[in-house]
């Protein structure tokens, strides 16, 4: 072991790192942004023990229960959707104050049981003529809930790095220049990259889907065709995002950073690991700007709620439109070298 040679190599490696100015921003800024992001998203009162959905008319009924501490009251507008959430244990109770006061609890929910007792206790002093409704539904396992997000996230990384990073590497090491010297056009090259990646991602996702199903037997209530269309449009969108990054960058380090900047906020704020419900309103708004959010929402509606193609047509249309826009911009910006 020769320490002199090792030290020389280490010095060269340190120089490589600190002379790469772009790398500094990703190594320092990214962790800080992530921490700040989490702090922002969860910057609310986190002491609440129960969640109650409230369907309320414009008349402001003075109900003491609504002023109970440590209960998060979430205003909802769609009755059926809210009932479904009670069935899914996503809220512990639904309170309908629009006409005849009614409430729903899930007979399988321990939280619902306790909350009902609190609720009934609250109007022993101020009587309230309220109708009780009972629904039933088994709690959705976390793995069932998270599965669509994991598939979508896997697809996101595969598309972004599989196209974006690779094309940048091609540019850096001269592969693009060699191809440019042939009659191959930029459009042909880009199309080939997109189509190849779509096929790869589709096959891999199918394999992951089948493999995961064998292992965990997750819930799949909806249309396989709808799921395929949603995931395919999502993959096309992510691939075109990767292309956008690859249009002119010349180093993999900068590409890595940009792709991380695109993917990490989506991974955290698109509802992949936890619901964005109850997070800061601005965080929820930002979440809606991410294509991954729409892919996760749509696939979750298909797999857990049994939605069909018409139920996710909006998300498919949105993802396809974004794909076309990104492809158009990428084709205008692309340079071989």
């Amino acid at each position: 072991m020769n320490l002199t040679r090792m030290m020389a190599l280490m010095r060269a490696r340190f120089r490589e790192f600190y002379r790469d100015k772009a790398s500094w921003s990703w190594n320092l800024a990214m962790p800080i942004l992530i921490i700040a992001g989490f702090a922002f998203i969860f910057s609310g009162d986190s002491k609440d023990l129960f969640k109650v959905a409230v369907l309320q008319s414009d008349s402001k009924a003075d109900i003491a229960f609504l002023k109970t501490d440590y209960i998060r009251f979430i205003r909802v507008t769609e009755l059926q959707d809210a009932i479904t959430r009670v069935q899914r244990h996503q809220v512990d109770m639904l309170l309908d104050l629009t006409a005849t006061p009614r409430y729903w609890v899930n007979e399988y929910s321990a939280n619902g049981y306790m909350l009902e007792k609190l609720f009934r206790e609250s109007f022993t002093m101020a009587p309230l003529n309220v109708q009780r409704e009972v629904v039933s539904g088994k709690d959705i396992r976390y793995v069932d809930w998270v599965m669509p997000g994991v598939l979508a996230m896997n697809m996101l990384f595969s598309c972004l790095w599989g196209v974006g990073w690779v094309v940048v590497r091609y540019r850096k090491n001269g592969v693009l220049r060699r191809l440019q010297a042939t009659p191959l056009t930029a459009f042909e090259f880009l199309s080939a990259q997109v189509i190849a990646r779509l096929i790869i991602v589709t096959v891999v996702t199918l394999m992951v889907f089948a493999g995961a199903d064998l292992v965990v037997d997750f819930t799949m209530r909806g249309s396989y065709l709808a799921l395929f269309l949603v995931f395919f449009s999502g993959a096309a969108c992510f691939t075109s995002m990767g292309l956008l990054v690859a249009t002119r960058l010349k180093t993999e380090e900068v590409a890595d950073g940009l792709l991380s900047l695109m993917s990490w906020p989506m991974m955290i704020m698109s509802g992949v690991w936890f619901s964005m419900e109850g997070t800061h309103p601005v965080a929820q708004f930002i979440s809606q700007l991410f294509p991954l959010t729409h892919l996760v929402d749509a696939s979750r509606r298909i797999m857990i709620d049994g939605a069909g193609i018409t139920g996710v047509a909006f998300e498919i249309g949105l993802l396809c439109s974004l794909t076309l826009l990104l492809l158009f911009v990428s084709s205008k910006l692309f340079r071989w070298s």
Partner: peptide, 30 residues
């Protein structure tokens, strides 16, 4: 571009290709 051939000073080729595959791929460009 159909009439010329170029050997650059430094060129990388796509990874995981054999010699014959690389030749065949470039032949397909013309």
């Amino acid at each position: 571009k159909h009439d010329i051939g170029i050997q650059f000073q430094s060129t990388s080729l796509l990874d995981y290709q054999t010699v014959i595959e690389a030749l065949t791929m470039f032949a397909a460009m013309y």
